[in-house]
């Protein structure tokens, strides 16, 4: 999990406090689980301990006290190093569809229903992601495109898996050696 580097990236634009970081994260990744506050604060504390971020200000404007963090030079270096490495060439979060499909094909339990339901949720999500809100930044569009491409890949894999395994005379068995 590259949450550390992700927090560094969220701090790279400008010094921010925890609430800002959470908001920014959730805007960057409309598809992922909202970032829990607890996690943000724990990560910031770790970044500070490791010299990757520092406290630049403590604001008290009427409301609760807010600690503003900024990237240190070491943090900036670490972020850049991370961005130099390509991401592993794996689909994101595709394990569940693989598990369910393989289980459906092995057991033969409602394969057709599984395909229909899986296609429906995937296509609906692709449809939603394709409806880009007016005024969305190019970066948000690109994040959406990335998600759409992954969902498309899942569906193509689903086609291939059902075709291959349905046309084989017997369901695949574990091979004993």
């Amino acid at each position: 999990m590259s949450l550390t580097e992700l927090h560094l990236a969220l701090l790279a634009g400008a010094p921010r406090h925890g609430y800002d970081i959470k908001q920014e994260h959730d805007a960057w990744f409309p598809d992922s689980r909202p970032l829990p506050f607890g996690q943000v604060y724990a990560t910031l504390a770790r970044l500070q301990r490791d010299g990757l971020a520092e406290v630049v200000e403590t604001r008290v404007d009427g409301g609760p006290e807010r600690t503003v963090y900024a990237l240190t030079d070491a943090g900036d270096e670490r972020l850049r190093a991370w961005l130099t490495e390509p991401a592993p060439p794996t689909g994101t979060g595709a394990e569940e569809i693989v598990r369910k499909t393989i289980a459906a094909l092995h057991t033969g339990i409602d394969v057709q229903g599984h395909v229909a339901r899986q296609r429906a949720v995937h296509l609906r999500r692709m449809r939603e992601l394709g409806q880009v809100p007016p005024g969305a930044s190019p970066a948000e569009r690109l994040v959406r495109e990335h998600l759409i491409a992954h969902l498309d890949a899942d569906l193509r894999w689903l086609d291939l898996a059902t075709d291959l395994l349905r046309s084989s005379p017997t369901p695949p068995e574990r091979t004993h050696s």
Binding site: L123, M126, R127, G130, I148, L155, R156
Partner: peptide
């Protein structure tokens, strides 16, 4: 279509 991105429309 056989293109999922088209079908999703």
């Amino acid at each position: 279509t056989h293109d999922n991105t088209v079908a999703a429309r």
